[in-house]
Design a binder for these strands. Sequence first.
DNA 1: ATAGGGTTAG
Length: 777
Amino acid sequence: MRGNYSFRQLSSTCYRSLQNEPINNKLQNATKTSTPSKKTLTQKRSEPKNKKSAISDSEIVKWNMSITTHMRNGQWESALQVFNSMPRRSSVSYNAMISGYLSNDKFGLARDMFEKMPDRDLVSWNVMLSGYVRNRNLGAARVLFDQMPERDVVSWNAMLSGYAQNGYVDEARKIFYRMPDKNEISWNGLLSTYVQNGRIEEACRLFESKEDWEVVSWNCLMGGYVKRKRLVDARRLFDQMPMRDEISWNTIVTGYAQNGELSEARRLFEESPSRDVFTWTALVSGYVQNGMLDEARRVFDGMPVKNEVSWNAMIAGYVQCKRMDTARNLFEAMPCRNISSWNTMITGYAQSGDISQARNLFDRMSQRDSISWAAIIAGYAQSGHGEEALHLFVKMKRNGERLNRSAFTCSLSACADIAALELGKQLHGRLVKAGLETGCYVGNALLAMYCKCGSIDEAYDIFEEISEKDVVSWNTMIAGYARHGFGKEAMTVFESMKTAGIKPDDVTMVGVLSACSHTGLLDKGTEYFYSMNCDYGITANSKHYTCMIDLLGRAGRLDEAQNLMRNMPFEPDAATWGALLGASRIHGNTELGEKAAKIIFEMEPDNSGMYVLLSNLYAASGRWGDVSRMRLKMRDNGVKKVPGYSWLEVENMVHTFSVGDSFHPEKGRIYAFLEELDLKMKLDGYVSSTKLVLHDVEEEEKEHMLKYHSEKLAVAFGILSIPAGRPIRVMKNLRVCEDCHNAIKHISKIEGRLIILRDSHRFHHFSGGSCSCGDYW
DNA sequence: ATAGGGTTAG
């Protein structure tokens, strides 16, 4: 609105002097010079004094200002009108147009104008260079940079920052040392190269090598510490710095706010000499991230000025707490929604399972970015609507939205969550087609997808192809093998990781220990557990202890497991007790299991999985009274047993089964086939184990229920519909039951098929009558 | 008209 107004105001004066001028003058009226140099060009404007351009320089300056104003308001069409109606143009006019196009995301138009422009001056080159840098097109930026007839310190700095922002630390360093003149911005450029790329120690050394840094650089280094959660170092800089500006205060407040130290954040907030919208928003967001929603709201309501980021932070708070109605009210009330606001709401609805509301908002958006698409795609994928997710992905491409790496990685991780291997493979294909399969982020996403979809061999192929593996790549591969019960392979990868010179971190060790636990490698696991502090400087956290307790418990050493738990330096959490409960179940120790379960109930009253585990434990020892009391307790506490179900993909369709399912169109064939299998299995030595069924019912009936557990139905359907020679991949939302596990071993032998089952805990590869978990799970 | 630091969404 404001832009239009200023356009009319300015152009009314301009048009008067234009009455007799042709409006269709394109670009031919530009000044003509041969060798552009900064000085001559600025003077050239007054040179061609023919009658047509009896227009003063100050008049031209006004036009140029008009262009700039329009561009700043995002009205590039109006700017073009002004540009086209100018009687003559200076290079400033062109430069304003190019830079305006660039800040309005009209890269193509900017490049066209740059190429058509008759006399480029140094600024034109610099503007265009910064355009390429902003578009992350470093190759083209470098070509341009090398073509430039002359370069000043701005050109060098632009190139430096381009390399810095895209992770090319070495190139950036080369530029810095080659540049003929350096100013404070260049020094800061190298410093921020290090900071932005996580080289905080190098940044620190550089900082100490020189005196008199500007406040910007102090802030940059302090921000680096804040991002790495090194608050003490950040505070030290803050206290030392010779002068502080608003950004210094905002950085330190943000640091404390984002790391849970809200009272210190608040204290500095009160102390800071001036607060702007950034400071306020940082505080709001700090309270939000720490779950202090009411305090966040009080601060939010007290803000003197809010911008869209402040609103979004508050909305995100309600979204995180699943208070979608309140979030929606704020969203509707906010005066200045931007794309992020919409994206936040869409993500919120998608994550709370309300995919139709998410879609509704998505359809109503006037502008979408790649995050909007990623959010809705992930929403569909995670709610089990894989096909719709892929449809949208295709639509995104058709709409001309740039398929960037983050859209792919997001869709891939959605595939991984629902184990949609076929969908994941299609995405993989598209990634290759789009030429985006390089890079460690994408590689890691692909790797995780194949691991979680049960295709561990393909996962390994991907892993090998990632040329620059980071610690996440190694960790994912190790954890992948661990979950599949391939302990030896996990260890091999772990050894090569060390050979490759990558330092294992705490996540690595969780993977390694759980590989030992899933494979029953007690001695090896114990060795790693006790030596990792000395070898890699990793202090055991509660996850490591849980792995160890699991490992000991499964090996039947329940006393040692309990001892370790008593001696660990922190309070056991539900997962730790869960490990003990699982071990008690395997070894039939009802007493210990009961104790563990009771504590877990107090910690997590809604954890229905624990009720089932304990019920099964009671049932296994024939304590049917306790079983029915458990059921009552679950009912009274309002906990519903999550119904078990299994699913598998066949020809791009997901088929879902639950116990005794009578909905599947092929149920006749499936049940008949199961009867047939049952006979063959019994001949093979299979005896149904009835002790793990939840109810106290007649023996015969129990056997009947077991026979039609969802995983058996899914496996039977898989054998019937997937051609021989291809693996059958079945997913289950709960842990596989003992009887089914036993049965599937027999089935894999009788039918000669590889059956890969993903349950809520890990993978089982059944083949030739045995399972990769070694009956340890 | 061009180059450096701080708040939200994935």
